[in-house]
């Protein structure tokens, strides 16, 4: 008998006479009726609680906000603090968000992205309650390595992408897309269970909230 058949047969033996499947009560919150402004404030508070930075901007001034975000992450001043060529953006990031001179992910081998100091992406959805951004591998968010290897990550979130609770967030996603849920910069609690920000993933996370 193959291992597959044997494991399945053991399960059937263990379960014996197949009793009815018990009901699953789903009485937890699945929606959030707080007004949108409150959700944006909550998202800001929760993201900042992870020691990330949130910058708000109006829809017609995203580029200056992205520049300010890169100043925050890389040191102030184009040319002085950072070189635009050291910044890579996801291929679907709209022109209206892109600072002059930045590179676009050209599909090079993934490890090549480690050469960049910062990356800029959009998100698929943002969850206010937990301060979570979800990237889905779409052109707007880029492939997974893009938001992983550069040491500074700038994510642009539009107000309409912000939901209140985890169930609403997951409900907006494609389950077979390569998804990354990002809640703050990379961190560890492995030494005396104290949180330290910045291990292997980006050590700096800056969120540009367009509202």
């Amino acid at each position: 008998m193959s291992a597959r058949d044997e494991v399945l047969s053991r399960i059937r033996t263990a379960l014996g006479d197949r009793r009815p499947v018990p009901d699953v009560p789903r009485d937890h919150r699945t929606t959030d009726d707080r007004p949108p402004d409150e959700l944006l404030d909550l998202l800001t508070e929760r993201v900042e609680d992870y020691r990330a930075t949130v910058l708000r901007c109006p829809p017609d001034a995203v580029t200056p906000a992205v520049v300010a975000a890169l100043d925050t992450g890389l040191g102030a001043g184009v040319g002085a603090g950072w070189d635009p060529a050291s910044v890579v953006v996801a291929p679907g990031v709209p022109d209206a968000w892109r600072p002059d001179g930045v590179a676009t992910d050209d599909g090079r081998p993934a490890v090549g992205l480690a050469a960049f100091a910062a990356s800029v992406t959009g998100v698929a959805v943002a969850i206010a309650e937990t301060g979570t951004l979800v990237l889905d591998g779409s052109p707007l968010c880029g492939r997974r390595a893009l938001s992983l290897l550069p040491d500074c990550l700038v994510c642009v979130v539009e107000a309409g992408q912000v939901v209140g609770e985890v169930p609403e967030g997951l409900g907006r996603l494609d389950p077979v897309a390569p998804l990354t849920m990002v809640s703050g910069p990379s961190a560890t609690s492995d030494i005396e269970l104290q949180r330290v920000e910045g291990v292997h993933g980006p050590r700096t996370l800056v969120v540009v909230l367009v509202a």
Binding site: T130, T132, P175, R195
Partner: peptide, 27 residues
């Protein structure tokens, strides 16, 4: 929702990766 709050005491852990099989050009 249950796991991060119970394990590291965070509202959400920094990274959760979700994938289904193979995605061309990514991973």
């Amino acid at each position: 929702q249950l796991l991060p709050r119970s394990s590291t005491g965070e509202r959400m852990n920094p990274y959760t990766s979700l994938w289904a099989g193979v995605t061309p050009g990514d991973g």
